[in-house]
């Protein structure tokens, strides 16, 4: 573009401050509560499953590494194979596989609902672009929304999974195990579940959000779809 004279050259770029993006994303989540709930539901379920498995494993390994003979006895009565003395429990290949599948199904579900959401909001996105929004504003809005959904959904799911695992363990192995289990380890597992959930939510929204961001503003001009 060298040498070309552009009178009234646009001096200022368009902006969307981060605070405003979050504000708009929160508004959007609030007013589409039901749709958000459906998107988040698959995440809640998958993450609660993940947290349940992780916390369960934490509890069992804390019991097995302890020297509480009575508790270990109750474990084997439940049909759990105790690894050699002093060694921690690990997930069986089958359990790993099921966990992986459940997370995969969750991501596919998120991609699906987010694609629907984008199709639903085509006009809104086009209008924003007509008002001067850049591709990355749209992308950012969707990513923030997904991150928030991921945070809330996986926090709920993680808490639910951990709670169920703990209650189940108390019922199965007796309340005496409470002293053996390290709270720290459980919290770490829940935390990892929340991080994983946010990641999955963001991975799930990437493709739909890119589609939305690439959309031409002309779409907003078209009549009813």
């Amino acid at each position: 573009m060298q040498g070309k004279i552009k009178p009234n050259l646009p001096q200022k770029q368009v902006v969307l401050p981060f605070k405003k993006s979050v504000e708009i994303a929160v508004k959007s989540i609030k007013s589409r509560f039901f749709r958000t709930l459906i998107t988040t539901m698959s995440l809640i379920l998958a993450i609660s499953f993940y947290a349940y498995i992780k916390v369960n494993l934490d509890i069992i390994s804390s019991i097995t590494v302890s020297n509480d003979k009575a508790a270990i006895q109750r474990l084997s009565l439940q049909g759990i194979e105790i690894p050699g003395e002093g060694r921690a429990m690990e997930l069986s290949p089958q359990e790993r596989w099921i966990l992986f599948l459940s997370l995969l199904v969750c991501v596919v579900g998120i991609v699906n609902t987010q694609l629907m959401a984008v199709a639903d909001r085509f006009r809104e996105i086009g209008t924003m672009k007509c008002l001067g929004a850049l591709d990355r504003f749209i992308l950012r809005l969707f990513l923030i929304e997904a991150a928030l959904q991921g945070l809330i959904g996986s926090a709920l799911g993680g808490a639910a999974g951990a709670l169920i695992a703990c209650l189940g363990a108390l019922v199965k192995y007796g309340s005496s195990i409470a002293g053996l289990v390290s709270l720290n380890q459980i919290l770490t597992s829940v935390f990892s579940a929340v991080v994983l959930g946010c990641l999955l939510s963001i991975i799930g929204v990437l493709y739909p959000a890119l589609l939305a961001a690439k959309m031409q503003p002309v779409e907003a001009m078209r009549g009813r779809d």
Binding site: P10, K12, V14, I24, R32, K129, C130, L131, P217, A220
Partner: peptide
């Protein structure tokens, strides 16, 4: 984008008010 933001105002047949 700047041009659309500062120089042009759009009015649509379907209003296109942002619902949220």
């Amino acid at each position: 984008a700047w041009l659309r933001c500062r120089k042009i105002g759009y009015i649509f047949q379907t209003f296109n008010i942002i619902q949220v």
